[in-house]
């Protein structure tokens, strides 16, 4: 049977890690939502250089590993005379990576709104930005919610990379407990349960929303 004393004796560490995992995920989610929206608008804006910039960002970031991005934020700033702590480096890395995927989801959502609406709104006197903000984005968001939920789910799982750079998250503390107590199997099972506590409700909500939005359409 599972060795519950390992859970109870190190409860503080699990909880600190658990909350730091939530913190990193929420921060990175908000930041990458903002950055992702901006990049998505770059990609569809009626201005070529912005399109290129957006496309370059998305194509490059999507095709390199998250681990690499996080290492860059952790090891590289010192070359430029900066110091970013491990938690922040990890969260920034997560944001940079996730923003590319979110940008793609949002772009797909915006482009799913019929083109005629943009033209109609523009001809009724709204500016491009106004049209985007009041007409297109509200509709796009509905389409985008399920894929965004999926990205958030990935984000929570990906936040475990903080453990590699001593980012004080659940993975870090779990690994620490296992290497101090020499108990690996049980400790990792407890860590898994903490992750499932976050991810299972999230993934069920996503599939629920998916079904519901599909019905409404």
């Amino acid at each position: 049977m599972l060795n519950f004393s390992i859970l109870i004796d190190h409860w503080d560490m699990y909880i600190e890690g658990f909350f730091n995992t939530i913190k990193a995920s929420v921060f990175a989610m908000i930041a990458s939502l903002v950055a992702g929206t901006i990049i998505a608008i770059f990609r569809i804006a009626p201005f070529r250089p912005l399109n290129w910039l957006g496309t370059m960002y998305v194509e490059f970031i999507r095709n390199i590993p998250l681990m690499l991005i996080v290492f860059v934020f952790f090891f590289a700033p010192s070359a430029l005379g900066l110091r970013i702590n491990s938690f922040l480096a990890g969260t920034l890395g997560l944001t940079t990576y996730t923003a590319a995927f979110i940008a793609e989801s949002i772009r797909a959502g915006i482009q799913a709104v019929p083109k005629g609406q943009m033209e109609a709104a523009r001809s009724s006197g709204l500016t491009y930005v106004q049209t985007m903000w009041y007409i297109i984005l509200p509709q796009a968001i509905k389409i985008v919610i399920p894929p965004l939920g999926n990205q958030f789910l990935n984000l929570v799982k990906n936040s475990s990379v903080l453990g590699v750079i001593a980012g004080l998250d659940l993975m870090y503390f779990g690994d620490l407990i296992s290497s101090e107590t020499f108990v690996t199997f049980d400790v990792y099972i407890f860590v898994a349960m903490f992750y499932l506590l976050l991810t299972i409700p999230l993934s069920l909500s996503v599939s629920f929303l998916e079904r519901r939005l599909a019905k409404n359409r």
């Binding site: 799982k157 475990s160 690994d175 898994a192 992750y195």
Partner: peptide
């Protein structure tokens, strides 16, 4: 699919 891959790697190697 609801677990981090990193955890699964630790698991297969250490546990």
């Amino acid at each position: 699919r609801n677990l981090p891959l990193l955890l699964i790697i630790f698991f297969t190697f250490f546990a």
